[in-house]
Structure formats: C-alpha cells, structure tokens
Design a protein around this nucleic acid. Structure first.
Length: 340
DNA sequence: AAGCTGACCAACCGCTATGGA
DNA sequence: TTCCATAGCGGTTGGTCAGCT
C-alpha cells in the first residue's frame, strides 16, 4: 500500500518559507479560509504541498499565536501538565492559549528537560533519577563503607526521601487541584475547585493523575482518605469517575498537612519516616521560595541538591546530618572516576 | 578572522486517527 | 466493511546564529 508522497512530488518547494509565500498563504486563508489543505496550494498559487501549508499556518502564521519567551506561569503549567500527561504536546498546548504544540515541544526539549536533568530528575517520570546510584554497590565494595552503613545507609535514605518527596508532590498537587477555592479567588467557572487554575484540566486528565498516584501503592501507611479532601471537592471533577473504586493510595511515609485555608497560603508539609515519631528532617513542603501550585519538582530539588553535596565532607545538608567524611575519600579514589 | 560548538527553532517525516464514499 | 484522503500528532532533522577558542 503506498503512502502518497507529500513534498517529494516533482517541483514542490521544501525548506524555509519566504515572506512572499507567507503573505500569499495568509491572504488566501483570510479571504477563503483554508478549506481543503490539499487543494489550497494550487488555489493560492503556492508551490508547496498542503501539509507544509497547514504546518506553516498552524505553527507560525495563525493570528492568535503568542510569540516570545515563556513566562514563569507558563513554564510551571508545562511542568505540571507534563508530569501528568507526558509528551502529549497538543494536550498541553490546549491549556496554554496562543502556544503551539511544536513550540512547547521545542521549549521542553531545549530548556525544561535539561533543567530537570540538571536537578537530578528523570524528565519523563519527573522522579529522581536512580541511575546515578546504580554504581553504588561497586562504590561500597570499593571504599569499604562500613561507616556509611552505620549511618543508616545515607544514600539509600536520601534516595528514599527523593522518591517519597516526588510522590508527595503529586499528592500535594492533586490536593491543590481539588481544594475548594475561596470565593474571592474563584472566577465564573462552574467548577468550585482549583482545577480552574491550570485552565480546564479535563476529567480524563484528573483521572490519569489519580491513576498515576494509585500506582504508588507499594508501601503502607497513607491513603487518599488522609488527604485533606472534603468529599464535596471531588464533585468538581466528574461524578462519573468511580472514586470509590480507586485503589486506596499507599504512600511509603507518614505526612501531615495542617488544614489549609483556601489558596492564600500554601500548606506546610512535614515528613515522617515510616514507624518513626519525629520528623525525619526539617523538610517543609513547599518551601517559601517554591512556586505554588507545585509541580513534582520543587520539593525534591532540596533533597537532590543535598545529594549532590554529599561529596563535600564539611557540609551539613538540609537533611540535618553531617555528611560522612568517607564520601570525601570515596570521591578522591581514582576508581570512582573510572566507574563514573 | 576563522573555525568550532552548542542552543534554538522552523520544518519535515512518518505514523495513527478520523470521516466519507 | 473496506478503502482512501485528509488531518493531527510526536519525533527528528537541519539551518541559523551567538559565543567561545
């Protein structure tokens, strides 16, 4: 079966568009609409294939396209939506008026993805990257890290903290989405929760978020019921979503959220390690400097930077423990560099 | 000044989905 | 139901430009 060639047909121009071509296309569409893209090039006098015309129009010439740098809010929205939707660029673009999927995709690939990687996150899962720890068994054997093990396996602890923080971030974000909005902050939309704050997050997308959270059920302790979610807030999503059939969400740590008072103040989150009575760290989420609503990113960066600082033997991390000096020795070892 | 490198982004490629005959 | 044309989407490529050596 032959796919009809697009621009390979004889004589059709490819490559960058000239201002004259742009003008022809815009003039034609303004006068006649695009109608059939296949027929458009002939009718408008363009020596291009219809697909090329369509892309040029939708990605560049459309009058409602917003150009220029992405704002902080847009960046945050992209991060939030990507953590839920993945590489569904058109779905993400539908929440950012004036931005095209192509533009968002480019922005992601050239900026946001790198940012996440630099901060130690897997840009696809928005979770801490574990690959940097994959050589740990070698390193432990290499450096005889009894001291580190005595320190309650700091690196494992840090890794666990990262994972927990990522999971909590998602829960926090879900909780944020479902919070009832104070009347003053609400707009005219019928929904009464913060789903409005990222445009119109669809029911399906909210459901996907819930499902992604439901996958975190490996360890005991917390459940959805521990979230500060008034039953009425769930109505804002969709009555047809069978919440009662969702698996009970299991989070591998305790966490407490003081009752939130509308949107004015971000909830403070204190992390408790499983089975322990005191907080495992002075770790509050979100920190005063992190943007709100949070994506999966902000809280974890604190721990990530702490892990990155492990090589500095004299530093005391936000974790509150002195970094074992053995890390310093380890990093000095030439074999470490071979592995790394 | 020339060459190199990396960032950026418009455009293309190829696949899937959709709708009409 | 099948086939085909078209639209839409996400991944990739390649040209341009700025900064650095």
């Amino acid at each position: 079966m032959g796919r009809s060639p697009c621009c390979d047909e004889s004589g059709l121009k490819k490559g960058p568009w000239t201002p004259e071509e742009d003008q022809k296309l815009v003039k034609y569409i303004q006068k006649h609409g695009h109608g059939s893209w296949r027929a458009l090039p002939k009718l408008s006098g363009l020596n291009r294939c219809g697909k090329s015309c369509r892309l040029r129009w939708t990605n560049y010439l459309r009058p409602d396209i917003k150009r220029g740098k992405f704002s902080q809010e847009e960046e945050q929205t992209i991060l939030n939506l990507h953590s839920v939707l993945g590489n569904k660029w058109s779905a993400i673009a539908s929440h950012l008026p004036g931005r095209t999927d192509n533009e968002i995709k480019n922005f992601w690939n050239t900026h946001l993805k790198k940012k996440l990687i630099q901060m130690g996150f897997d840009p696809m899962t928005h979770r801490p990257r574990t690959d940097i720890f994959s050589s740990l068994p070698h390193l432990i054997a290499l450096a005889n890290l009894k001291e580190l093990i005595d320190h309650h396996s700091l690196e494992e602890h840090a890794l666990r903290l990262q994972t927990e923080a990522a999971q909590m971030a998602k829960l926090q974000y879900l909780q944020y989405l479902l919070q009832p909005q104070p009347p003053a902050a609400s707009n005219t939309a019928t929904s009464s929760n913060n789903l409005n704050n990222i445009g119109t997050l669809s029911d399906i997308e909210a459901f996907n978020l819930l499902n992604s959270l439901a996958s975190l059920k490996d360890s005991p302790v917390s459940s959805l019921s521990q979230l500060d979610l008034p039953a009425s807030s769930l109505q804002g999503i969709n009555d047809s979503i069978p919440f009662s059939h969702l698996p009970d969400l299991q989070i591998p740590c305790n966490y407490q959220t003081p009752p939130t008072k509308g949107m004015a103040q971000a909830p403070e989150l204190t992390v408790f390690s499983q089975g322990e009575n005191s907080p495992i760290s002075p770790f509050h989420f979100p920190s005063s400097s992190t943007p709100f609503p949070p994506s999966a990113v902000p809280p974890v960066t604190q721990i990530s930077s702490m892990v990155n600082n492990l090589g500095d033997a004299s530093s005391t991390s936000s974790y509150g423990e002195e970094v074992p000096s053995v890390w310093h020795d380890l990093l000095e070892d030439p074999m470490f560099h071979d592995i790394a």
